[in-house]
């Protein structure tokens, strides 16, 4: 699988896919998409990168251990729930603010934070699985 063309294009493909996955994540609340799908796309991107350029390269590119990313995701998800607890409503009740940046109204909410958590858990978990399996190839 390590053809020159594949190895050359893989990083760009991965970057594009990750970018796309974030786009899918953020549009998720209003259009098809969301954390699960976005996470899977990003995880596939890293899996492709891993097949093309080796697991070590992916790990270096990720900087964090995939399971750490996954853990951070779970942390965000729980924090998103806790916010509403501090706000005096029930656990995981959605909270919304609509600040205006450069004249555009941006919707920020705890469900969005939660969805980011979902995204990170899926990216971390699945990438970890894929890399673990690919790594065996080398020995």
């Amino acid at each position: 699988m390590r053809t020159v063309i594949f190895r050359f294009t893989a990083p760009y493909l991965t970057a594009l896919m990750v970018l796309f996955s974030i786009f899918v994540l953020l549009r998720g609340h209003n259009d098809p998409g969301g954390g699960f799908i976005g996470g899977l796309i990003a995880a596939s991107a890293f899996a492709i990168y891993g097949i093309a350029c080796g697991v070590v390269a992916v790990r270096r590119a990720l900087w964090f251990h995939p399971m750490a990313i996954s853990g951070a995701g779970l942390f965000f998800a729980v924090v998103a729930g806790l916010f509403s607890l501090f706000a005096g409503t029930g656990f995981m009740t959605g909270l919304w603010i609509f600040p205006v940046f450069f004249g555009n109204e941006v919707a920020l909410s705890t469900p969005l934070l939660f969805d980011i958590g979902v995204y990170l858990v899926v990216v971390g978990g699945i990438t970890s699985i894929a890399l673990a399996l690919e790594e065996r190839d080398t020995d």
Partner: peptide, 8 residues
């Protein structure tokens, strides 16, 4: 819930 995508 301010979301258009009901599934999400």
């Amino acid at each position: 819930a301010h979301g258009h995508n009901i599934v999400n």
